[in-house]
Write a protein that binds this DNA or RNA. Sequence first.
DNA 1: TAAAGTTAAGTAAGCGCTTACTCAAATATA
DNA 2: TATATTTGAGTAAGCGCTTACTTAACTTTA
Lengths: 339, 339
Amino acid sequence: MKKTIYDIAKHAGVSIATVSRVINNTGRMSDETRKRILRIMEEFDYLPNMHASALTGKKTNSIGVIVPDVSNPFFGEIVKFIQLFAEEQGYTVIIGSTDYHPEKEANYFSLLKQKSVDGLIMATSVDSDESLERLQEIVDDNVPLAMLTHDRMPFPMDVVTIDDSMGGYIATNHLLELGHKDIVFVTGSQTMTSFRDRIKGARQSLEHNGVEFHESQIIKSHFSIEGAKEDIGQYLETHLPTAIFAVNDVFACATIQAARKRGVKVPEDLSVVGFDNTVLAEVTDPPLTTISQPKADMGKQIVRMLVEAIEGKKTSKSKIILSPELIIRQSTVKPEAQV
Amino acid sequence: MKKTIYDIAKHAGVSIATVSRVINNTGRMSDETRKRILRIMEEFDYLPNMHASALTGKKTNSIGVIVPDVSNPFFGEIVKFIQLFAEEQGYTVIIGSTDYHPEKEANYFSLLKQKSVDGLIMATSVDSDESLERLQEIVDDNVPLAMLTHDRMPFPMDVVTIDDSMGGYIATNHLLELGHKDIVFVTGSQTMTSFRDRIKGARQSLEHNGVEFHESQIIKSHFSIEGAKEDIGQYLETHLPTAIFAVNDVFACATIQAARKRGVKVPEDLSVVGFDNTVLAEVTDPPLTTISQPKADMGKQIVRMLVEAIEGKKTSKSKIILSPELIIRQSTVKPEAQV
DNA sequence: TAAAGTTAAGTAAGCGCTTACTCAAATATA
DNA sequence: TATATTTGAGTAAGCGCTTACTTAACTTTA
């Protein structure tokens, strides 16, 4: 039932070596033979057993992608683009979603090593000792690495990010320009370097504009939208700023909902800025002013770099920093306009 | 650098057969030997080469999952749950997103066959000849299949769905109970059996309530949110109903936006019901009345069934139909309340 | 036209593992 | 104590492929 290279060879009246040569398009051989073999492969619906070829050291044509959470639309969209471009280049994608758990991340590293992926894209902040140890093994195997949306490099690797710090800066600038002075920041796990940078940029903006900053202006929240609503809601009980900048759209949506639940109107009583420009920003009420990341471009660039590294067309590492963009919708207004 | 079973065997002073036995926990052997070998494997960070073991016919501990679009929050969430439960059972997940393209679907079947996945979960409607042909090969290999969210079975397989028809029914009933008579339905590709069933249920509800139905009450839209906005907007130019039932939340959000763009207010001028209860429904303006699918439960059940089939604990096929639930938010009101 | 070079294709080793078969030593049975 | 049985572990074939090496049949070259 199962077709092997032997079946093809037998039917073509050649040796398996010849068949292997046409599979890999290597060696010399008469055009006639090659065509005949191709025809027979077609006819038999023959697909080479990739475990056998991987065992001999060939590429597996697969790349691993590790993201914190596929169900976050930002990563959902990113993954979709990565998959699209990887496919164009003839690679399959194996996705791991870590739920922000370092152990899961470490497990994925082991797993992807076992699956012998040809390269690895990471969109998580790899910091746990366990993860780094596992990643080290992958590095030892000379598997190319690329990091997306983070700019920390535990090992030499290609990087694609946006300028998160600038993103935080322009978001905050936008609020300051509107006239807000009392701005609060919502962020998540501080291990996410992208979040840290966004906050850093925000603080720089405050500083440049001569507005003071206190640690108490930061809400550190949990990751689920429900958890975030809770955390933000509690904060709002004690202090109601005129504007909030959240480090991603999920938090921004949570902010809007937490505010609404307490009778605080967005944007009249509270302006909100998000980050990522996901579908959530388009759809939420009010539509969210947010910082856009060029997701398609990011996906394309990272796949391009990784594939070049895999195929040996590129030996040095590079870093691509794309620009974030402010998308003004209706969740931000001047504080004068507030009730 | 690379550790093989030979390295472990040599260091343990045993044959590779013995090492293999401890890896697979088979055969008999003194406790002492087993422990010693385990310790050495640990020390060497040894992971068996899965291509080698797959080559001998062992399971790969991976399952394929095919969805139409990972960036649709409904599938993003579903995939997340599938991944979670699969992992608990010791399986990796290889995800394919087809963008509703039959050729991509067919490609994924080939690919997953090559990767020799142990089982396959499909959340797409498999109809193209090409896809069915490729799927046939997978069936011939006795790979267990499970279908999610669809209830069409090109081959014998396990199924988990909700009762889509009932979902359409209760959504429409809700609108009728509010007093709407002029209801329009937004749907997508008719190859999606789930969409067809939702519309079917809607029509049944109309019929039971003595409300007439015309084909012109159906808007067939494209899949991207932008395309849908366009399609729905055009329809609204010619006819403005008092309520719209969209077969998923993405279409419902598109409806709200298309309406808003034309100055039609939701819910005052137009009530909207969605389907799926994704994060979009929570977040959109106004929050969406929608039909909820128990995604976590669906993910859990389908993984459970598939794994049981893979591990031979289950030979007959079964079908699990879960109940949809109406979640009333603020996008639906009585037409009397309309302007 | 004989020696040298090309060309098309075959032979066989090896990738890292599993497993049926084998075997010697230890233990049980009569 | 002689024989049968169990136990722990090794031997070697084979999974489906790739590829270095080899070979036989042609072509060139001088």
